[in-house]
């Protein structure tokens, strides 16, 4: 007993306790719902059996049915396009802005703070505003494009199957850029100044300094921001609900919106869970890549 206590205060027990508490927390709050979700995807679920756990087991039927549906592959492709384009856009614009404010001109920190406004706004509000901006007949975006002579006729951003997904991507890039910028600014400011001074003395130009100092030193920040970006884009739901509702004809439908539509509009909870499981697989792959890419990191 005494040994147990002393190990709890300072020793193996303490270590196990430190690891065990968050692990237990993670298992109950994330692990169990995940497992429940997987179980649900293997069952036949309808609204009247929602309250009980013991429902008819149907094996992989939900998965087979799902992939037999004609809209499944286009929606998966849409999701991939949405994720890649959103992250790329948010990251590039965010990094550009972070570098811009890093030059520390007068008022830079003040302006940088203002940029955060977009991140503070709720998704549904952002969606409603972009809904107006992107409106076909009277939208501001069409007005600007027309006045500058870039287009002749109105583009129906929300209703043209060729544009609707990009309409949501544009709104999502706007929404996520400031968050990228802030995290990358933090990364930039943690790079020791003397590195730049030394390389300048050695005669490195701006490009060389960027490629050989800034980028490598930012590796962990960039890894983190892209991993977070993947999570944020995969859970982006409000913009779809507010701007296109996944339409027209599923042209802007993505898995996260589709899962909700199946579960809560068509009351097909098993299919909704099935899509979620497929999404979990993709997130797992992404997180493995992220963990491996930052494993050998040396901070300094």
């Amino acid at each position: 007993m005494k040994r147990f206590l002393s190990s709890m205060i300072d020793g193996r027990g303490f270590d196990i306790g430190l690891v065990g508490l968050p692990l237990a927390f993670l298992l109950t709050l994330s692990g169990l719902p995940l497992l429940y979700n997987i179980a649900m995807s293997l069952q036949e679920v309808d609204m009247f059996s929602l309250g009980s756990f013991w429902r008819p087991f149907v094996g992989l039927k939900n998965y087979r049915d799902l992939f037999a549906q004609p809209e499944t592959w286009p929606i998966l492709v849409n999701t991939a396009t949405f994720v890649v384009a959103s992250i790329a856009g948010q990251f590039l614009v965010g990094f550009g802005l972070a570098l811009f404010f890093w030059t520390n001109f007068p008022g830079a920190s003040w302006l940088r703070g203002l940029f955060l406004v977009s991140w503070v706004m709720p998704g549904l509000v952002v969606g409603a505003i972009w809904n107006w901006i992107l409106s076909g007949d009277f939208g501001v975006l069409n007005f600007i494009l027309r006045e500058t002579g870039l287009i002749d006729g109105n583009i129906f951003w929300r209703s043209d199957p060729g544009f609707s997904l990009w309409a949501v991507i544009i709104a999502n890039i706007w929404l996520g850029t400031s968050f990228n910028m802030i995290l990358l600014s933090v990364g930039l400011s943690s790079i020791p100044r003397d590195l730049y001074e030394a390389s300048e003395l050695d005669g490195a130009n701006v490009w060389q300094r960027f490629w050989t100092i800034t980028l490598p030193m930012m590796r962990s920040s960039i890894g983190a921001i892209i991993a977070l970006g993947l999570i944020f884009t995969l859970q982006q739901f409000d913009l779809f609900a507010a701007i296109t509702s996944g339409g027209p004809n599923n042209a802007s439908n993505v898995t996260q919106y589709w899962a909700w539509d199946l579960s809560f509009r068509q009351y097909d909870f098993a299919k909704g869970a099935t899509i979620s499981v497929i999404m979990i697989v993709f997130v797992m792959i992404a997180s493995v890549v992220y963990v491996r890419s930052t494993r050998h990191e040396v901070r300094g």
Binding site: D137, F156, S159, D160, T244, S245, P248
Partner: peptide
């Protein structure tokens, strides 16, 4: 009818009638 008919609900569509569009 506006191509946005495909993504607009009845309330918003009728709004364009009220405004004379």
């Amino acid at each position: 009818a506006s191509p946005d008919t495909l993504t607009r609900g009845q309330w918003d569509s009728t709004g364009t009638f009220n405004s004379g569009n």
